[in-house]
Design a protein around this nucleic acid. Sequence first.
RNA 1: GUGGUUGUAGCUCAGCUGGUUAGAGCGCUUGAUUGUGGUUCAAGAGGUCGCCGGUUCGAAACCGGUCUUCCACCCCA
Length: 461
Amino acid sequence: MAQKPSIPKGTRDFTPAEVAKRNYIFDVTKRHFETFGFQPIETPSFENSETLMGKYGDEGDRLIFKILNSGDYLNKVDDATYTTKNSTSLTSKISEKALRYDLTVPFARYVVMHHNEIDFPFKRYQIQPVWRADRPQKGRFREFYQCDADVVGADSLLQEVEFIQLYDAVFTDLGLDGVDIKINNRKILAGIAEVIGAKDLLIDFTVALDKLDKIGAEGVKKEMVTKGISADSIAEVEPLFSLSGSNSAKVSTLKELLSDSEEGSKGVEELAYIFETVAALGLQSAKLSIDVTLARGLNYYTGAILEVAAPKNVDMGSIGGGGRYDDLTGIFGLKDVSGVGISFGLDRIYLVLEELGLFPDTLDQSLQVLCLNFGVKEAMAALKLTTSLRKSGIKADLYPSDAKIQKQFKYANNRNVPYVILIGEKELKGNSFVVKHMDSGDQKSYDLKNPDDFIQQLKNG
RNA sequence: GUGGUUGUAGCUCAGCUGGUUAGAGCGCUUGAUUGUGGUUCAAGAGGUCGCCGGUUCGAAACCGGUCUUCCACCCCA
């Protein structure tokens, strides 16, 4: 007896309609990547474990899918390791490869391995699946696509400006108006920590600050105190909790607050420059706002930190993020290569576009024309017509059997085919074909020898 | 990884404190309609109630385990 098939937790099948929608997002995104001068690369779905392990913190290591060695992998484990049952030391002996966890680390590896053949600055984009042994939730999967664009080998802040424009271009093209691009700078966060004398508590400080809109100012202060930051120090940065007004007002507040910190002042300066430049160039539909609570990816970001929030009317968190990392390739021995990059959260963008009904109607039109099958002789004529339609680039098909006409029509309906062609005995005798427009129900007759009339009309309408 | 939640027809879901043969809508098949779909009407097919075990005279329902779904935390796209 056949068992019920299933797929692993956190993975998905994609139906034709879903693939069409996903490809639409891919295509729009790729088109803009390329107009901004980015080039595509691809890397293997699995890497050597040592390339990935230790790059994402302890939490990250736990979430990396490890691949068992081939052959009799357990036989090679020494008895001491085996009997201690320590997962970490055992894992390194039975697994030498692991599935790609993100696209950034493999990219860093790629840059180091190919740096002699790369022309810097190198702008690459990459759209490939990654895997995480996380517990799935809505919009979070164990296999999902990441879509990254990075520039390495360019220190200029113009790169940050360009990425903001890129976000704006893509989301505008997708019809997703009103996204909020939030920007912060790690140097500002470090400066604040310095000012309140909690320099070595930077991570704890920012993790708490990041929760401001979730647990409120009082909650944040409480958490900071439990982490060992004094109440007096917290009072000094009180203005942070109610930072509001225009971006330039925020800049002035920060400038004042951080005047004693060299690093913090540098961060404010960078932020101000990016903001002013973007303002001078203008954005099509996105907003740019300063958000000092933004603290994602703090482990490797060194300058700008970016995050894109979905429009306010949908309940979806961030749909993209990125930042500047000054020393990404350092971990692989290549110093002084600066990088900036952004990422698009494709699955979440999909959910947002779906919710707002922003996918074009034409996407589910997998067939433009269906010829009905009235029998052997009629089908032959229909197939000839189908062939010439296909040669003109029209998505056309012939129903493969002379099933009941009712059934064939129903199939056309379910497939959302806008035009159905009928060639029966009558039409065959008269050397013609009848085109039925499914929405209106109108029928029109054309000459079988001259299908161009119909083709032209199809292309115009 | 911690705590909770969900699973019944192809799909969306009812099914009372455990009690005969498990239901509805949509979809599907057939017919009304032998060359015209969407609307309508009639009939029909389709379920070892996620899986394994336990309690019971009796389990879709109660208990345990497991898988899956979703949610919060952690973290993150």
